[in-house]
Design a protein around this nucleic acid. Structure first.
Lengths: 246, 246
DNA sequence: CAGTGCATCTCGATC
DNA sequence: GATCGAGGTGCACTG
């Protein structure tokens, strides 16, 4: 493991180190006083201040202040980093196309620059996602309601794929929408689109009156407004979360 | 400006530097080989690998690999960082409550540690947001359609605040939903909720038959499915983006 | 490539 | 504190 690190470099020194780091495919961390400007999907300007700049070998660029989980400015992966010294300032520019976007970071001083080769070790195992909730529902359909039988997951429809499609104890078609956390009215709208699409499809196929398609929203909880909309549509809510035991 | 920087520190040295940095309210950048585990809203484990860890004085923690704009693991602002040496490893733990969440980073080696005081300079001026689009519509209502008169922004309704409320040339009430970029069916659902809420409100107030409430979606463009849904509901789409001249 | 929906989404405003 | 909607959302997956 090789880490390159320079303290209070001149712009020239910083430039060399940056170009070497880009060449090697290193991950770069830069402390310094800079201004930042962005132009692309939107446009922004950030006045002078001390920040942490991260440049990744996959083209991602991050500008972090002392606050927030989100970078104050950034460039997505797939961008290209370039560095130059212009008018006594170290300029780092990251560009991409589709959409055309440019992030320009202009340092009047670099306090610290580090670069390290960072490869592999990206395998994250995550639990508690919507997929886990689906797994629970498929293993224990009775948790949705007694007699519920899942028939298909990601079932296609004209409104997009529905999470779980099945039938209830009376043989009625059921659309289940899964959400890993408390939901608002938007989730009910999503469920309604799937139910409507399925009603049209079954009605069209059968030729006679559309069969009653039920909608069930499986989520830990729902907001008041979502509950109202569920009631309006005649949908059910089943309280279930991805991790709980029973 | 003071930057503290240590190369290949022992765990003890790294611990001292970390505790000092936390004390001073510095922003910390840490290169090293580590494992990461998270438990809270979900749970995850990340095997050993070289990563960049950023610890902010506001409590945010970020674990970055060589790829992606997103950190592979993180902790939101408001968390508390603590460091300790346990069983020959440097352990950095960030915890918060509501919800209870813990991020644990365990280093078997620290390659590089830097800390810097980073304050202020967070004022970003951004152009091209939905608010800019609203400003355009209010200054040039004819861009929506000739004779359109905005009456209110963020007008409250039982379905939440609508972006712009106004009347058309014939005096019909109009709900305008603004989107800064190309939209899918969800935006139509949002607009439909506002229109329905307003219809119920005006119908209830007037006592007689509900007046015709129009819905207009202002966005650069819409997907096919969104266009279908707009047509279903009888809503209009006006092509407009936040930045264009005309 | 665009479209669609999930996310430990984050973040700010508002109630 | 909960709710709601915007975001330069990012991101994976599908057609």
């Amino acid at each position: 493991m090789t880490v390159t690190s320079v303290h209070d470099p001149s712009h020239r020194e910083a430039l060399w180190e940056l170009e070497d780091a880009f060449e090697r495919g290193d991950l770069v961390s830069l402390f310094g006083r800079c201004t930042v400007s962005y132009e692309g999907r939107a446009a922004s300007d950030l006045g002078a201040g001390d920040r942490l700049v991260v440049l990744k070998p996959d083209g991602a660029a991050l500008v972090h202040t002392d606050e927030g989980r989100q970078p104050v400015n950034w460039q997505p992966p797939g961008s290209e980093h370039r560095a130059a010294v212009r008018e006594g300032r170290l300029r780092v520019r990251s560009t991409r196309s589709n959409p055309d976007e440019t992030l320009t970071i202009s340092f009047d001083r670099v306090h610290q620059l580090s670069a390290m080769a960072v490869t592999g070790g990206r395998n994250l195992t995550l639990h508690g996602s919507e997929e886990d909730l689906r797994t629970r529902v498929l293993e224990r359909p009775d948790l949705v309601e007694p007699g519920f039988e899942p028939r298909e997951t990601e079932r296609p429809s004209s409104a997009g794929p529905m999470d779980v499609f099945g039938v209830d104890a009376d043989g009625n078609p059921v659309v289940v929408e899964l959400k890993r956390r408390r939901v608002g009215p938007d989730a009910v709208g999503q469920l309604a689109r799937y139910v409507r699409a399925l009603e049209e499809e079954l009605g069209a196929v059968g030729g006679d009156a559309s069969p009653a398609v039920r909608g069930i929203l499986v989520a830990p909880s729902v907001t008041d407004r979502a509950a109202d909309r569920l009631a309006d549509r005649g949908f059910d809510h089943v309280a279930l979360d991805p991790t709980s035991e029973e």
